Simulated scan of single mutants.
Amino acid sequence: MYVPTPTQGDPHQTAGPPSWLVIGPGFAALIGLFLLTVIYRFDGRSALQVELGMSSQSLLLSGLVAYLVAAAIAFPAGLLLGARFPTSVTVPAICLMLLGVVLIAFVPNSALLLVGRVLNGLGAGAAIGVTAALIRRLRTGRGAAIAVTAGLGVLALVAAPFLGGLMSDALGFRVVYVVAALFVFVALVVAGVLGIVAMVKAKPPVRPMPYPPHA
């Protein structure tokens, strides 16, 4: 009688992650890209820079360079661990983003701005790494996922200074980060729920106990 090998008998060992699992870290990654450039504006100094009394060089170092360095440090961890433990990496990453955004929303000086931007960068870098890891393991629709994610990422980078400038002029820069915190919280809920669904679906079905042979 033919007995299947463990690899042949368990389709979960060769199947890639479900495509919908990318939504959680992907959403967080887009928010992270938006936060990267929202501190700037196209038509002059940003409201954040003016209110905190920062020079252009200080804003560059504390706002942009610190963010990029932190993201570069966290990205490899997300890329290496994200395929096997997407939810376990994504949820803490989003929590770091949420903490950083809330800190910046109520920051009194540029020193704490640096801390908030580092937290944002760590979370965004890890989320981007998880997104890349999951997309790389997709068995179908990988090209479409790459195109959509890249397109939305570029849109987030370009739109952030414009939208942030409009909202800062009307309500102040702190409101921008309060609104961003709401979106980060939504990403946290989405990632958590989808992770639970994926975990439940990954559990093997319980096989019924065979009946004992009749005497």
Rank of each mutant, 00 (worst) to 15 (best):
R41H: 13
Q49S: 14
L21G: 01
F34M: 10
Y40D: 15
F42S: 15
Y40Q: 13
F42N: 14
G44I: 12
A29F: 11
F27E: 07
L52G: 08
R45L: 07
R41E: 14
R41F: 12
V38E: 09
Q49V: 11
A28T: 02
G24N: 02
V50G: 00
F42H: 14
G26P: 08
E51I: 10
F42Q: 14
F34H: 09
W20F: 12
G24K: 02
V22C: 08
A47M: 10
L48P: 08
G44L: 13
L35M: 12
T37K: 03
L36Y: 09
A28G: 13
E51Q: 15
F27I: 07
S46R: 04
F27D: 05
Q49M: 15
G24R: 02
R41L: 09
D43S: 13
I39P: 01
L35S: 10
F27W: 08
W20E: 05
G32R: 03
I39A: 12
V50I: 13
G26V: 08
L30N: 01
D43G: 08
L52F: 07
T37L: 01
V38K: 03
Y40N: 15
L48I: 11
I39C: 03
I39Q: 09
G32P: 04
L33S: 04
L52I: 08
L30C: 00
G24C: 03
E51K: 11
L36M: 13
L52D: 06
A29S: 15
I31Q: 12
I39F: 02
I31A: 07
I31E: 07
L52K: 08
L36G: 03
T37M: 02
S46L: 05
L36F: 13
L30W: 02
I23R: 11
L21C: 00
Y40H: 09
R45K: 04
E51W: 06
S46Q: 04
V50Q: 11
Y40G: 08
R45F: 01
R45C: 00
L30F: 03
L36C: 01
T37G: 01
G32N: 07
F42M: 12
A28Q: 06
I31S: 03
